[in-house]
Design a protein around this nucleic acid. Structure first.
Ligand code: MN
Ligand code: MN
Ligand code: ZN
Ligand code: ZN
Lengths: 164, 164
DNA sequence: ATTGCAATTGAAAATCGTTTTCAATTGTCG
DNA sequence: CGACAATTGAAAACGATTTTCAATTGCAAT
């Protein structure tokens, strides 16, 4: 790793080592906060900005890429798989991947037809995961049952849930 | 309109009328700023928050929905069409729509298989539109040609371009 | 028309994740 | 061992979004 980075013109530092290691240990779709917390447990002196900068660096060198689900926080996804889509649970913020090969094919064709040069495909299905639906008792989703104005099912939790 | 809103428990006001009208006159994928500017030309006294709140209201009553392309600004898209995908030009920020019926079918099946209740599908192709490619001279996109590190092709423009 | 009151408005401030600044520290290379 | 660019941490800056609050205004019932 030290070697890999040097060839790209970057130095290796204890913080960096720590951050890189922690990042790859955490699952996919890591947020700055999650990584920051994890690193802090090892060395509380590591700064927020350092974690952020190194996450950027990891992307820079092509080991991960940013994923923005639209909930306000950026997630960092390892790039060790073929293009894939995301099932994003709006309740617990969990992310599950799925194959998008056939979909990408369609989009590529569509793009070619308009002379649009695709650089990145974003395929997401937002909704409620199996676990959350069980917990809350929603049956079919889509179409708020009459009477229920605001959401605030007050139960579910599984990841940070501070709604921004 | 006044009637429609009243049945939903909202009042009509001159600002609201102005904002609603302006929103539907502007094309699709309007940002708060764009609408704010447009409204300002008619009545400079209208506040930023009022425009924002009414845009939210328009969504509330089901006439539009938020679209977040990941570039930091929220766009508001009229809901007068069947589900569609977006070609998003990262250069000029233009948005072009395309049909996603077959894609939604695939995603629906995929979701069902995982017991995931879909509520919203997001299908985007980020890249460079025909116009921008012409202007800059990029040929194929994907894979930065050697030597070019930073982007800043210093030319193109077509919509706000302050990169956040 | 007048009145009561919740809805609405505009300005300013608060949020909050992201990004930059800056002085101090630390790798790396000759 | 230096020289020096890269890196770091704390704090501040950013910027779009969202909230707060006092003042104003629709509108429905007198
Ligand atoms: Mn992923
Ligand atoms: Mn659209
Ligand atoms: Zn869930
Ligand atoms: Zn373009």
């Amino acid at each position: 790793m030290r070697e890999f980075l040097r060839t790209k013109g970057y130095k290796m530092t204890p913080q960096r080592e720590m951050i890189f290691r922690a990042f790859f240990e955490l699952g996919e779709h890591v947020t700055v906060e999650e990584l920051y917390e994890k690193v802090r447990k090892i060395d509380p002196s590591v700064g927020h900005s350092t974690v952020w900068r190194n996450l950027k660096l990891i992307c820079e060198v092509g080991l991960a890429e940013e994923v923005k689900m639209g909930d306000g926080v950026t997630r960092y996804d390892r790039v060790t798989r073929q293009p894939h889509g995301h099932f994003f649970c709006t309740e617990c913020k969990s992310v599950v991947e799925f194959n998008v090969e056939p979909i990408v094919d369609i989009m590529t064709t569509e793009a070619a037809g308009r002379n649009f040069a695709p650089e990145h495909f974003k395929v997401e299905v937002h909704g409620v995961c199996a676990e959350c639906r069980e917990k809350v008792g929603r049956q079919t989703a889509r179409g708020t049952s009459p009477g229920i104005e605001d959401d605030d099912h007050a139960t579910v939790e599984e990841r940070g849930n501070t709604s921004r």
